[in-house]
Design a protein around this nucleic acid. Structure first.
Lengths: 228, 228
DNA sequence: TGCAACTTTATTGTATACAATTATGGCGAC
DNA sequence: GTCGCCATAATTGTATACAATAAAGTTGCA
C-alpha cells in the first residue's frame, strides 16, 4: 500500500504528510506551524522540519513570515483567480492529451477513484473526499504522460483546496462528481474534444461556485483581522 | 539598479545568483555544486547554502543525488519535450492576455529589453544575451498581471536555458530576435490574436531547433558516461 | 599482474547550540 | 484608568559539530 513514499523521518515524508493534511482541511488556512512543535510530533529535529516547511513554501502551501514562523497559506482573492486561470490553461488541453493515450485500465482506475470519493463522502469524511477529488485531476495529468505539467497541476490543485476552504459558498455538494462522471464518459468514448470542453467547463463551474468578491478578506483568525 | 533583491547572504540571494549563473551558462549542466565550496564563495555557512540549493532543486534547476551532492540539472530529452509542451500551453494564451492589458510604456520596456539583448550579443556576451532573451518571455507574463503563471513560466524559461545548453544545434543565431520583434509589432498593433499565434509559432520554432533524438544521451562528463 | 576487499578521505545528512528578532507582560507616568 | 516604554520570554535565523554514507586509494592475495 505504500506507494514509493520516502522513509518516515525525512523532509520529503514530513512535507507529504503536511501537504495531505492541508489538502484534507485538517490544517485550516492560517494555522501556525511551529518548528519545535512539529519536530516533537515527528520525532525529528528542527533542521528536517525546516526543510519540509521550505518545500511547502515553494509550493505556496505555507507562507513564511520573517521571524514569525510558517503558517498554512491563506490565498488572497487575487491568488484564487490566478490559480484557476492557470488551471484553465493547463488542464483542458491535458485532458485532451490524456484521452488520446488512455487505456481501459486507466478508465477503470479513474472510476475506482470516484467510487472511493463517494465512499469517503458517505462516511462523512469530507476532507478525504475533497483530497480524492483533487487527486482525480492529478491522475488525468499523469495519464497524459506529462510529468512536468503533472507537477504543476498538483501544486495548483493543492492550492485550490486552500481556496475552497476560504471561499467556498455552500451549494449542491455533488456537482463535482457529476462533472467527473461526465469526463469519464468522454474518455470511454475516446472523445478528446469533448473531454477538453468538459474540463474547461468544470473549472469554470468551480470558479463560479466561489465567493471571490474583493470585500471579503476572510482573515484566518479574528486577531489578525484587527491587527492592522 | 538593485531591483528589490534580497539582502546578500540570504538563501534567496544566493539562489537568485546561482539561478542567473545557470541561466547564463556560466554554470553548465552537470557542474558539481559543493556546499562547502559555495559557502566559502559567499562567506556563509552550509545551512544557508543548503536552503538555496533546495530552492533551486524544487525548481528543477539542480539535481540532488543522495549523499553525493547537488549538480546543475541535466534535463533529459523527455524533460525537454515536456518543458516546451508546458510552455506551449501557458505562453500563447498569456501573450494574448498581456496584449490586451499592454500600455505604451510596457511596449517601450520590451523594446529596450531587445536592445539590451542585441548589445550583449554584439559585446560577445552570449550568456547574458540568452538570459535577456528568456527574461523577455517572463516580462510578457508579468505584463499579463498573472503572477502565478509568471512564476511557472519563469521556471520553465530557466529550464529551457539548460535544455538549450544541452541540445541546441547550431543555426542562425538571430532568429530569436526576429520572433521577438514580430511579437512587439503585434503588441503595438493591439492584435492579441496575432500575438498568441506568433508566440505559439515561436515556441514551435524553438523546439525544432533542438536536437532531441533519443540516441544522444549527452552525459555531463565522459566520466559519467562510463560510470555504468 | 589483476582483482578484490579493506582502509582512508571527503562530502552530505542530521542534530544541537548560539544569536537575532519579535511578541508579550508588567511597570510607571500622564 | 489608559497609554507608552522597558524587560522578559519564546520563536525563528544561522552557524557549528557530529554521524552516516559513498568515493577513492591502498594493500594483500591469487
Amino acid at each position: 500500500m505504500n506507494e514509493l513514499q520516502s522513509k518516515p523521518g525525512t523532509a520529503d515524508a514530513v512535507a507529504a504528510d503536511l501537504e495531505r493534511a492541508i489538502h484534507e482541511h485538517r490544517l485550516p488556512p492560517g494555522t501556525k506551524l511551529g518548528e519545535d512543535e512539529l519536530g516533537e510530533v515527528y520525532g525529528i529535529s528542527r533542521t528536517t522540519v525546516r526543510a519540509a516547511l521550505q518545500s511547502l513554501g515553494h509550493r505556496h502551501l505555507v507562507q513564511h513570515k520573517r521571524n514569525r514562523g510558517a503558517f498554512v497559506a491563506q490565498p488572497t482573492v487575487r491568488e484564487a483567480r490566478e490559480v484557476f486561470e492557470a488551471r484553465s490553461l493547463l488542464e483542458p488541453r491535458t485532458a485532451h492529451s490524456a484521452c488520446k493515450r488512455m487505456t481501459d485500465d486507466n478508465i477503470r482506475a479513474l472510476q475506482a477513484h470516484i467510487d472511493a470519493e463517494h465512499s469517503a463522502l458517505d462516511a462523512g469524511e469530507s476532507g478525504r473526499a475533497l483530497y480524492l477529488s483533487g487527486r482525480f485531476h492529478i491522475e488525468i495529468a499523469r495519464m497524459a504522460d506529462q510529468s512536468t505539467i503533472e507537477t504543476m497541476i498538483s501544486e495548483l490543485v493543492s492550492r485550490s483546496s486552500l481556496i475552497i476552504a476560504l471561499y467556498w459558498q455552500r451549494r449542491a455538494a455533488l456537482c463535482e462528481s457529476q462533472a467527473h462522471h461526465a469526463l469519464i464518459s468522454a474518455f470511454a468514448d475516446r472523445d478528446a474534444e469533448l473531454a477538453e470542453e468538459l474540463m474547461k467547463n468544470h473549472l469554470l463551474d468551480l470558479v463560479t461556485s466561489l465567493d471571490l468578491r474583493n470585500s471579503s478578506s476572510i482573515p484566518g483568525t479574528l486577531k489578525e483581522a484587527l491587527a492592522k
